[in-house]
Design a protein around this nucleic acid. Sequence first.
DNA 1: AAAAACCCCAACCGCAGAGTG
DNA 2: TCACTCTGCGGTTGGGGTTTT
Length: 326
Amino acid sequence: MMRRPDTTNNTTTPSKNGVTVHNKLRKGLWSPEEDDKLMTYMMTNGQGCWTDVARNAGLQRCGKSCRLRWINYLRPDLKRGAFSIEEEELIIHLHSILGNRWSQIAARLPGRTDNEIKNFWNSTIKKRLKNSSKPSSSTHDQAPSDANKELLMEDIMFMRLNSSSSSSSSSMHAFTINTNYNLVPFPDTISNDCFLNNISSSLAHDHGMYDDANAHGIITMGDGHMVEEGYDHYFVPPLESASQEENGTNLDYAYQNYSRNINEINSNMINLNVHHDTKNIIKGSNLVGSHEMWEEGHEKMKVGEWSLEDLIEDVSSFPLLDFQVE
DNA sequence: AAAAACCCCAACCGCAGAGTG
DNA sequence: TCACTCTGCGGTTGGGGTTTT
């Protein structure tokens, strides 16, 4: 299927000392034999310099091609088969936040590759969203819009103004995130309460700020009743491969402490009013963790400079929400 | 049944960033 | 500082499969 193996480039010339010289590198589809060679080599030696992999595995491929083949096809932890509804939902949500940052999206879908997600988006989701006749109030299938970004930026600017205006005050400066976002219930693989609990806190977190142990947010449910959240109830969509050191997110905390009543948030569309009273702004600290962490974080306290790009740079703790103008 | 149009997706390409000498 | 290599990313291509005409 797809591109034919480029056999015309598959020429080798034995040198005088018997060492095979690879005149040209192969392109195109991988043969089963090539797959075997690469798989065997990788399982035996592990990942190293891809140029070396290509050479040492006896493949007439460039390192780049080997890397791609391994990542997109041979890797043993790859998930095969069609995308589930849950995965599709997650892709849509993440895309609404990240745009075409496929590698970042893929990092949050275990077993899926950026290429796979990109293809899926371009061939299936994009089309579906385009053809969808649903009104804009249904954010399920919304591509990112400038209006959404503007809405977010307004809130960010609002936070900046409030925080910087009071930054001279050493302890209590307060600001409010007053945001209306439409949310889509998270698929059942992750409980809805975790999803919602994550929202306001991680919004603040990813904006480079966070409140201290008294942090709280108020989630307004679809029926208007309000639920308070605590800082120890947050869910962080985990990165598949990034280490804690790399991304500053402690995955061990990711799935903890979910005590909310799911029934409370089992509505299709929920308006969130997130209010944060914040004492401190901490950039780069863990979303959830011990008080010691917060103490440590205080050492780095600062009023950050934010841009939309910065905010979406790493959404490891970003809520799964669609930004939607109401 | 055959041709055309469309779909899917593996793999390529070019670029940018990091690392190294 | 520069040149080079390696790696990773996102955009694009193109060919086999499927559906439509």
